[in-house]
């Protein structure tokens, strides 16, 4: 089997899985199943990127989206108690709105593809291969030299997003009691208990050989 044919077969197999999984995200009734279908979509997209020799992006997609974001997503969906019947109540009422949005998006996408198709441009050679280094090394060099400013701005925006999320959700409740772990660790047993050394003693007037209690 020649490698190109094998690559082509892999491409169609991964694409099929991606499209099928993406479709099942919106058609599956069970929300947990839908989230898992989304995970599969991300995973097979990563496989497609891997075929395109974008190994860093592919693995970053798995680490960031599949490994962290979708786990939290799944986490939230599992905690929700969704009433399926109630969810489907407004289906007919909202169908026209949904259809209009979908048609507008379809028209826009078709337009975009049409414009792109009009001026066909042949993709240049893989810049990483031209430079003779791995995809990851090339991407790192490009990001930190040529595109340093956009990269830093993106990082700043993400930081602002994190701060905003914390600021929005942090509520100070008056009735919460917090324990300071450093205080707990710094506790000295001698401050808490006092060990008194004393000789054994017994109530006055009793003889040790015949305790009063043992007599019936």
């Amino acid at each position: 089997m020649n490698p190109q044919l094998f690559q082509l077969i892999c491409f169609y197999a991964f694409s099929f899985v991606t499209v099928a999984a993406a479709l099942s995200v919106i058609t599956l009734r069970n929300t947990v199943h839908a989230v898992l279908a989304l995970v599969l979509t991300f995973f097979s997209t990563a496989c497609l990127w891997m075929l395109a020799e974008a190994e860093f992006l592919a693995l970053a997609l798995i680490v960031v989206y599949v490994g962290a974001v979708m786990v939290l997503f799944l986490f939230v969906v599992m905690m929700l108690d969704i009433d399926q019947e109630k969810m489907r109540e407004g289906f007919v009422k909202f169908l026209p709105v949904g259809l209009i949005v979908a048609l507008a998006m379809l028209a826009e996408m078709l337009g975009l593809i049409g414009v792109r198709a009009m001026h066909v441009q042949i993709m240049g050679a893989n810049p990483a291969t031209v430079a003779g280094m791995s995809n990851t090394a090339w991407l790192g060099r490009a990001l930190y030299t040529q595109y340093l400013l956009p990269f830093e701005i993106a990082a700043l925006i993400l930081t602002v997003g994190v701060v905003a999320a914390v600021a929005l959700t942090l509520r100070q409740r008056g009735d919460m009691r917090h324990e300071s772990a450093s205080q707990q660790v710094a506790v000295n047993p001698r401050d808490r208990i006092r060990i008194v050394k004393m000789a054994s003693e017994r109530p006055a007037g009793e003889s040790p050989a015949t305790p009063q209690e043992s007599k019936p």
Partner: peptide
Amino acid sequence: NAGVLYLLAMTS
């Protein structure tokens, strides 16, 4: 080439 990233992906 991206062995460490692959490991991170698999463990996650």
